[in-house]
C-alpha cells in the first residue's frame, strides 16, 4: 500500500450535506470488475448533462457548467471540502475509488458516514473531521480565494491554511500508522494467524453449528 504523510493541494468546496455514494458514483459504473477508471464518472449526474455509461469516452460529453468540478478554478483539486454525513448510503468502495481516481487525496467534512469513512483509509484517502464552525470558515475562505490550497500533515495531525492558521484533527492511531507507513492490514492480521486459529478451536467446541 502507498503511504500518506504530508500533502498540499488545491481545494474544491462541495457545499451540500448528506452527499450519498449513489451521487458520488452512480450504479451503472459498479458493473466494472476493476478498481480503477472511475474518475471520469465521479459525480456523473451532477457533472454531465447526459447519462453516463460504463467505459464511455467522457471527453466530449456535455458538462453542467455550474457544477463545482467543471469550474476552471477547481481543476486539479486534490482536497475536497464537504458537509455533514458525507458518503452516506451504499457501502460501495467504488466511491473512494472514483474520488481517488479523479485526484482527491483528502476529504474534510464535519462528519462522515461510517462505512465510507472506513473505505477511505483502505484506499489512502485521508478523511478529516473538523468542527462545523471551522468548516464554515474554510468554505468561506476557499470560495473567496481563487487557488485556495490547504496543507495536510498526518504525523502532526494538522490542517494548515494559506495564512498559516492551523487546525488539529483526530485520527485513530492504528489507521494513522497504516497510512504513514503504507501498511497492508491483511498482512498485519495474518501475523495473528495462531491467535485466530486458537479462537476457532475454542469456538468449534462451544458453538459447533457455526462451522
Amino acid at each position: 500500500m502507498q503511504a500518506f504523510t504530508t500533502m498540499k493541494g488545491l481545494v474544491a468546496p462541495l457545499d451540500r450535506a448528506n452527499v450519498d455514494t449513489d451521487a458520488i458514483i452512480p450504479k451503472q459504473f459498479l458493473k466494472s470488475i476493476k478498481r480503477t477508471g472511475y474518475g471520469p464518472f465521479l459525480f456523473d449526474e451532477w457533472r454531465y448533462e447526459d447519462v453516463g455509461q460504463p467505459e464511455m469516452d467522457c471527453t466530449n460529453r456535455p458538462l453542467r457548467s455550474e457544477f463545482l468540478l467543471n469550474q476552471p478554478r477547481y481543476q486539479g483539486a486534490t482536497v475536497l471540502l464537504a458537509r455533514e454525513n458525507f458518503g452516506c448510503g451504499s457501502s460501495r468502495e467504488h466511491a473512494p475509488w472514483a474520488l481517488l481516481d479523479y485526484g482527491f487525496r483528502c476529504i474534510i467534512a464535519p462528519s462522515f458516514a461510517d462505512i465510507f469513512y472506513n473505505n477511505c483509509f483502505k484506499n489512502v484517502i485521508l478523511p478529516i473531521v473538523l468542527d462545523g464552525r471551522i468548516m464554515d470558515a474554510l468554505f468561506a475562505e476557499c470560495t473567496a480565494t481563487e487557488g485556495y490550497s490547504l496543507g495536510i500533515d498526518l504525523q502532526a495531525q494538522r490542517v494548515v491554511t494559506p495564512s498559516r492558521e492551523g487546525f488539529s484533527f483526530d485520527v485513530d492511531a492504528f489507521r494513522k500508522q497504516c497510512l504513514l507507513n503504507g501498511l497492508d492490514d491483511i498482512d498485519l492480521t495474518l501475523q495473528e494467524s495462531a491467535v485466530i486459529q486458537s479462537y476457532e478451536t475454542r469456538r468449534k467446541s462451544e458453538a459447533p453449528w457455526l462451522f
Binding site: 462505512i115 473505505n119 485513530d172 492480521t189 485466530i196 476457532e200
Partner: peptide, 20 residues
C-alpha cells in the same frame, strides 16, 4: 455489518475484521 470491498478481501483472507 456492511463492508467495503477491501474488507471483503480482508474477511476472505483472515476471517476477521479490525473494528472499534
Amino acid at each position: 455489518m456492511g463492508i467495503g470491498t477491501s474488507e471483503v478481501e480482508h474477511v476472505l483472507a483472515t476471517q476477521c475484521l479490525i473494528q472499534k
